[in-house]
């Protein structure tokens, strides 16, 4: 039996994060930790410690898919972990992220109005105004929260679907953050290999 660490329970944080978004959308900002921390660890540490140990989402998929047997545990289709799909999805994901930032910028500049909705799968608008009744922040702060929560919820739903259909952590095979941090690590280790390191 492997020794458990405090970070083995971060799947609980993942549940709390999505639950908080139902009460006050501004909590969506906390999701930036999942965006910034993996990049910091990859750029400065040259590792994927976040994916390997700190990712609450992948832990949640393991708990649901493996422990609670919600996964069919079938092999993930090979194209899902192919380079063209992984990097294609990364580009698509970053484009959608940039679009979300642009929407926030429009609201910030007064050219656009706050849209109190969560967009699922980048197309289905779900009214979410009940999570933003008290307005303590500027409209652009709320706009970013709605947009960011949409991104987080959409990717979590995709992850849950592939978890049920294939292996618990099938999402990891094309997770944009995972692809991006692996690219950074490979760039940092270019020309190196475990065999050279051991010498």
């Amino acid at each position: 039996m492997k020794k458990k660490h405090w970070y083995d329970y971060l799947w609980i944080w993942s549940i709390i994060y999505f639950a908080l978004g139902f009460f006050n959308i501004l909590f969506a900002w906390l999701g930036l930790i999942d965006f910034i921390l993996p990049l910091v660890l990859a750029i400065f540490g040259g590792n994927k410690f976040f994916c390997n140990h700190l990712c609450g989402r992948s832990q949640l998929f393991t708990v649901l898919g493996k422990n609670l047997k919600c996964s069919r545990n079938k092999p993930t289709p090979k194209w899902m972990s192919s380079k063209w799909f992984r990097y294609g999805f990364l580009i698509f994901f970053l484009t959608m992220f940039a679009s979300m930032l642009y929407q926030t910028y429009l609201v910030f500049g007064g050219a656009g109005s706050l849209k109190e909705a969560v967009k699922l799968f980048w197309s289905i608008k779900v009214p979410w105004g009940w999570a933003y009744t008290v307005r303590p922040a500027s409209d652009w702060v709320a706009q970013f929260a709605f947009g960011f929560y949409s991104l987080m919820l959409t990717s979590a739903l995709i992850g849950l679907i592939v978890m049920v259909l294939f292996k618990p952590r099938s999402w990891c095979s094309f997770c944009p953050m995972g692809s991006m941090t692996q690219l950074i690590c490979k760039f940092k280790q270019r020309g190196g290999s475990p065999e050279i390191s051991e010498e």
Partner: peptide
């Protein structure tokens, strides 16, 4: 994809 599932 270096997800670390195997390591865990």
């Amino acid at each position: 994809v270096s997800c670390g599932a195997c390591e865990n």
